[in-house]
Nucleic acid binder design. Sequence first.
DNA 1: ATATAATATTGTACTCATTTCAATTTCGAA
DNA 2: TTCGAAATTGAAATGAGTACAATATTATAT
Lengths: 148, 148
Amino acid sequence: MEASAAFLADQLKMKGIRPSYQRVKVLDYLNREGGHPTVEDIYRALSPDIPSLSKVTIYNTLRAFVAAGLVRVVEIDEGQMHYDTTLEDHGHFMCEACGTIYNFPVNIDPFPIEGLKQFVITQKSVHFKGLCPNCLDNPSTTNKEKNK
Amino acid sequence: MEASAAFLADQLKMKGIRPSYQRVKVLDYLNREGGHPTVEDIYRALSPDIPSLSKVTIYNTLRAFVAAGLVRVVEIDEGQMHYDTTLEDHGHFMCEACGTIYNFPVNIDPFPIEGLKQFVITQKSVHFKGLCPNCLDNPSTTNKEKNK
DNA sequence: ATATAATATTGTACTCATTTCAATTTCGAA
DNA sequence: TTCGAAATTGAAATGAGTACAATATTATAT
């Protein structure tokens, strides 16, 4: 289901972000699709509807969203950045066969952080890699390249 | 102190890597300097001694070392890859002011991995970011750019 | 409603890490 | 010593992300 443009615009206004047509569309995509899209994913999805859309706009938009705390950057993939709408703390698992990123619950705080006594920690990430159940079941039918 | 070239060459041979002049020099650098160097770091350090040295060789060399299990990739910095000679499991802390990467002990295994029951996990990383004691003490005297 | 100033969008050009490719050099075994 | 395989090198390509300047849009004050 699709949230109304007005509702999405209010979401942005509350965060001090001007609800331009493009920004509302990006937010709508993020809310609808979830997952961990890249700039490229978003561009490919919205470009048909907004022929004039530029990737630069998506970069700018996501930068604004991250600064406002609407989305988070996931840096599990060296190739490109992914964006995550789940704001609660959680871990990320990336399948090395299909490239899909999964969230999993993990409690990061009770870590024995001996050795970082004098450090100020502003960001904690837990990143796992391996093979997801889907690729384990269908070894040859999925891979990163195909899914592009 | 510097390990003998013969000793380093044997280290490589044992891993099935042909001990070329360049590879021995890269391994020597890694053993001597430790830390979390980038290709650029290694290139700048070795280039004066090996004028013909190409960055591609360092890329190739590190890829071979990683495949052989001699070093590990650290993907905490989106900009560029870092390499780590510490093979035991540990976390990485990256200072957002000076860019320095620190190791810290962390026991990753006893994680409550509910939600990944069906997954094959081949790699686990714990990445923290923030400010290191050095930069907390000298706020203006260190930064990523200067340290380049 | 309109003018004006501030902000967003867009295309182009650029940076920079990494990879690809082909040519040359080096190494190792016969 | 020779020959084939593997390594090194430079040049060129790739691809994500950024910088910049021009244009378009929006918000606010009049």
